[in-house]
Structure formats: structure tokens, C-alpha cells
Design a protein around this nucleic acid. Structure first.
Lengths: 213, 213
DNA sequence: GAGCAAGTAGTCAAGTTTGACTAATCGAAG
DNA sequence: CTTCGATTAGTCAAACTTGACTACTTGCTC
């Protein structure tokens, strides 16, 4: 699974109604084009695809108020909201070392209630521990780990990464339990979208920090 | 960049000459189908593609010695070896939090000389540190990090992950400098491939450890 | 008032990935 | 000797991703 559907659904949802370029801009504002496959083609493709699947409703209107070709506006449907929450929950609990999905999920974390967020993160910890145990058991040969040669370093990397992720997740849980951030149903939410016309403070000409390909 | 080309090139290279199914089996032996996109379709596609690009030479022969359709055998060309080393070096130094590429690179680490491996890993550390600095500078707004709300947790995750990766890399460098493993030009190498007919000890019916999708 | 850079909005072909499917042979049981 | 399952080997259509490209408007400058 890629992060694109979660990102696009979440972006449309925060706007209520949005056209492709608006989504594209939000994702850039979040830096998502840096850490996920949020390229124009992927975004427009995802919008069309999800419209076809009934997760979004397309309004074939709006002859552009500010230059460019006519634009299609999308609205999230009930099915889309359901899918969004399903994806979000799944992304939060699943440990599969894909940072793009994890990052996207954190971005929408506050769309859940505080209690559910904590519960899901705790489930995530359980999964990480299970995975760690499975790796160490499954991939360490009976005749000792030396058997694996340098290949053992791959398992080592996995275990190390899992431990780091677990530690980070525990820290996040603690911060949330201590009252950090504003979650669903707790009043004025933090909205990470750009209003129509607002400029993007992160849109620069410079290369972005992790752009070292 | 995905890990598939590095994996396939590396697998063919270790065999000297291999058909698709052999590559597929090696990758399963390494657990690569778990942590990368090493699915049959991708493997055969990569083989054909790279043959077309002159990185592999295809021998359209071999009417299967053990069931199944006739198979094509591939041999790595000089250009392929060059590309393999280029990919390997690039994968080792680049920090982009893609575990699949990193894992693949570790698997072929010993195909370099000990000195070069250490040098590349040190360059990797430099890149991680540069990336970390860029993130903390670039994404922390002037009015303090609170501005970002829960979005700041994404940066937090990145920095945490970068630190963990750096620590792991330092550990690996130390082990290598103390003489661990056998590198290119140091005698009998460790070969992580299955001989023709050898059974795969990791091929099981059970779900694999990180297969919790 | 023509030219042109910047911004807006989206399309497209080429390439890649996915997961289910085909098809052939071997070995053992009946 | 034939049927069945396991193994071997690979194909294919559908979906997704990529990055370059089109096309249109506004505002500025000369």
C-alpha cells in the first residue's frame, strides 16, 4: 500500500471540497512531495480513481477563477470517509518500516479521538514487538548466528530499527496522554491546509532537505 | 529508485549465470520478498528490461531440466557489473529511509573491498547528519516549533529515525574495522545463494514474520 | 500594448508493480 | 498406468507511478 490514497483523501476531507491543485498544494505544504510519491500525476490519478470507486464525488464544474484549465472539484463521500478512517487506523498500527505511510498517518492522527489514537499506538507497539520476536526467532539459524555471515547484519538492522521505532512510539503515546495536541471532538482543531490564496511558506526554489538523489 | 535492480543484478552476478526462477529463489532465501518488491512479475520484468539495456546477456536456451516451461538464462555483462557497483555504492551512501534498498545494499556489502565499504559507510554518516541538520533548520518555524502542532511529530519521527540509523551505521563500521566478515579480495567469500537442487531452509508455509498486512 | 515570466491546473505516454493465472514435468499412490 | 499434488518456470492485464509536457491567465516591464 502506498501513502497516496490516505494523503489525498485526508486533504480533500480537511477542505470539505477541493480541486486537484489545492490537494497538490496542501501536500507540498506538508512536505509530502519529499517523503512520499505525491507527484502531480499520482495525485490526479488517485483523485480520478477514487471518484470512480465512489470514495469521492466529482463536480465537473468551475471554469477556473485564476488561470489555467477548468478544474474539477471533489467532495468526500461517506464511503470515502470510512475508507479514510480505515486507512488511517491501519497505517497507525501496522509496522512495515515504510516511513511515508507512517508520516502520513501521524499527520492525520488528530482526526481520531485521543483515546483511540492512544489505543492504536499501543497496538502498534504490540505489533512491533511481535515482529521483532518473529525475526529473531525465525532468522537466527540453530547453529548460531555466525552461519549467516554478513547477511546477519540485515536482521541486525531490522531489529535496531524496530527498537528505535518502538521507543519513538512510546514517547508519542506519553506526550498524547499528557494532553498534547487537540484531537477530534476537543474543540478548535489544528488545520494544516492553506486557505485559498494564502502563500506557502515552505515553497522555495532551494532543493529540499532530503532531496539528495 | 527501487531495490529490485540491485537485487536482481547481484543475484545473477553471484551465480555467474542464472535463470529467472533461480534469482527468484535466491531472493526468497534472503527474505527479500518480505522487505522489498521482489515479486515474480517484478523479477522477470527487471531481467528482461536489463537484458534490453545491455546489462545482462540473455541465452534463449535451456528447455528446462526439471519441469516447467523453457527457461532463459542470464549472464551479467561488463556494463551490468559496472551498473551493479554503481547502484551498490549509491545505495550505501544515500540516506532516504528506504529500508529495502538499505537491506539489499548490506547484502552485497562484501562485494566491495573492506576499505571502500568503510569509506562509503562514513560518507553515509555524513549524509545522515547533513539531512538531519537541514530538517531541523528548514522545518522549524521562527515562532517556535509549537506553530506546527502535531505536524511537528513528523519531523520528530524523522530526526529520531535518522539518529537511530546513524547509531547503527557507526556500529557496523566498528565491526568491519575490527575485522568482521570476509570482503572482496580477502579469500573465500561467504556465498548466500542456493546451489542447484539445494532446498531453501526458510521456505515455509507459515506467514512470514513481518507479513501482517 | 507586446512580450514574457510566474503562477494555475491538469494531461499523457512510458515505465513499473501487482497478484493472479498458465503450463509443464516429476513422483508417488492407487 | 493414470491421476493427483507438488514443484518448476514464467506470463499477463490491470493498476500505479513518473516526469515531462500542454495550455491558459495575470501582472509586470519596457
Amino acid at each position: 500500500m502506498s501513502a497516496i490514497r490516505l494523503l489525498v483523501l485526508g486533504a480533500v476531507r480537511q477542505h470539505g471540497r477541493a480541486h486537484g491543485y489545492q490537494v497538490r498544494n496542501d501536500l507540498e505544504y506538508w512536505g509530502a512531495h519529499e517523503w512520499s510519491n505525491a507527484k502531480p500525476g499520482s495525485i490526479y490519478h488517485a483523485l480520478k480513481q477514487m471518484a470512480k470507486q465512489g470514495l469521492l464525488h466529482a463536480h465537473e464544474i468551475a471554469p477556473s477563477t485564476a488561470g489555467g484549465p477548468p478544474r474539477t472539484e471533489y467532495e468526500i463521500t461517506d464511503a470515502g470517509t470510512e475508507e479514510f478512517l480505515r486507512l488511517l487506523r491501519e497505517s497507525l498500527v501496522s509496522y512495515d518500516q515504510k516511513m511515508d505511510i507512517q508520516s502520513a498517518a501521524i499527520g492525520f492522527l488528530v482526526d481520531l479521538s485521543r483515546d483511540e489514537a492512544v489505543a492504536l499506538l499501543k497496538e502498534r507497539i504490540r505489533r512491533i514487538e511481535a515482529w521483532r520476536a518473529a525475526v529473531t526467532e525465525h532468522y537466527i539459524p540453530e547453529d548460531g548466528p555466525e552461519q549467516l555471515g554478513h547477511i546477519g547484519e540485515i536482521m541486525n538492522l531490522w531489529v535496531h530499527t524496530a527498537d528505535s521505532d518502538e521507543a519513538w512510539t512510546r514517547g508519542l503515546i506519553e506526550r498524547i496522554e499528557r494532553g498534547a495536541y487537540t484531537f477530534s471532538g476537543e474543540g478548535e482543531p489544528f488545520v494544516g491546509v492553506l486557505a485559498e490564496g494564502e502563500q506557502n511558506p515552505y515553497a522555495t526554489d532551494e532543493r529540499h532537505p532530503d532531496d539528495h538523489r
